[in-house]
């Protein structure tokens, strides 16, 4: 039997080390990856939660070199916790990831930013992002604004609050404003029946197929498309208005209930939607065309029911003239 012992080098993994039994207890069933928004976006297993557990194990045993690509995997996660909800072995996956991150930071090995937010040279050092970061991940290092990658949960709120557009998330896995706007317009332009775009936050479980695609004959008549953005905290006027420029009849946004939101994103979501509804009223467009719903994690049935009611309402209103 070829045996593996923890090598001297990897003794440095003092935070990750305590998870060694957990890493063995994970039965590697893969239940975690089908709901992972990162896997969903790239289709590569190596972007999925199980891959990170396997990588963490490899780092610990020395079988995986702490290469750029291995480290980048450990620093890429939106902390939506859908993997933990699906885990068949009760593994606290994100806690394992965070401890691996802590070790890598302490070893000065956080080479790739992964999904960690960063700050460009445009930064005016207004410190707003530090105040607004719900995870206390941003700080002023005496010269620049920096992010502690073992604290950042990639919710993207700093990106939205930065007045200089200096906060960015390099690897957005399809959740940047540009990506979302593009996907909304592709859907609206290619479906004659298209009426609405539904923006769902990463934390809500959206209904529908997770990893497969229906035949064109079944989807050509779709009247809405669900697009996953990071967090209600990231909803902003430009994103919400984009579908209307492509003749959408309405836009719906979903975020977590007040007491479930880990990033206080619901506050911004409410504010943004309310503001737009007022604008709509002023220009004589029915404000009901834009709507916010709060969905508890995992409640797909409620989500579907809300979508159905919204579409019904839009059908009564017809297109915007």
């Amino acid at each position: 039997m070829k045996t593996k012992t923890v090598k001297t080098k990897t003794k440095k993994f003092k935070h990750l080390g305590k998870w060694q039994d957990t890493l063995a207890n994970c039965i590697r069933c893969g239940y975690c990856f089908e709901h992972c928004p990162m896997f969903h976006h790239t289709g590569w297993e190596s972007d999925a939660p199980r891959a990170k557990i396997v990588t963490a194990f490899g780092l610990l045993t020395g079988e995986v070199e702490p290469s750029y690509s291995a480290i980048d995997k450990m620093f890429s996660c939106f902390y939506c916790l859908r993997c933990e909800a699906a885990c068949s072995s009760g593994v606290a996956l994100t806690k394992v990831f965070t401890d691996a991150r802590k070790d890598l930071v302490e070893m000065d090995l956080q080479e790739g930013p992964g999904t960690t937010s960063t700050t460009t040279l445009q930064c005016a050092r207004c410190l707003v992002c530090i105040e607004e970061c719900p995870h206390e991940a941003r700080f002023y290092d005496g010269k620049n604004i920096a992010t502690d990658p073992s604290k950042c949960q990639s919710c993207g709120i700093c990106v939205e609050v930065c007045p200089a557009g200096a906060a960015t998330i390099e690897k957005s896995f399809g959740t940047s404003r540009n990506d979302l706007t593009k996907r909304a317009s592709i859907f609206l332009q290619n479906h004659e029946s298209a009426k609405a775009i539904v923006f769902a936050c990463n934390w809500s479980y959206y209904p529908g197929l997770q990893a497969s695609v229906l035949p064109d004959s079944e989807t050509s008549g779709n009247d809405y498309e669900i697009l996953v953005n990071m967090c209600g905290g990231r909803l902003e006027a430009q994103l919400l208005m984009a579908p209307f420029l492509n003749n959408a009849w309405g836009v719906m946004a979903a975020c977590c209930p007040d007491d479930e939101c880990e990033h206080k994103g619901y506050l911004n979501a409410k504010k943004q939607i309310e503001k737009l509804r007022k604008t709509f009223k002023n220009i004589d467009i029915d404000p009901e065309r834009i709507q916010l719903v709060q969905i508890p994690a995992g409640n797909k049935t409620l989500f579907q029911a809300e979508i159905d009611t919204f579409i019904e309402k839009l059908n009564k209103m017809g297109p915007i003239r």
């Binding site: 590697r28 893969g30 590569w44 297993e45 990588t55 995986v64 070199e65 290469s67 291995a70």
Partner: peptide, 11 residues
Amino acid sequence: PSDLYIYGTDS
């Protein structure tokens, strides 16, 4: 190699 390592395992 970090990707290959991941694809070297199943349940």
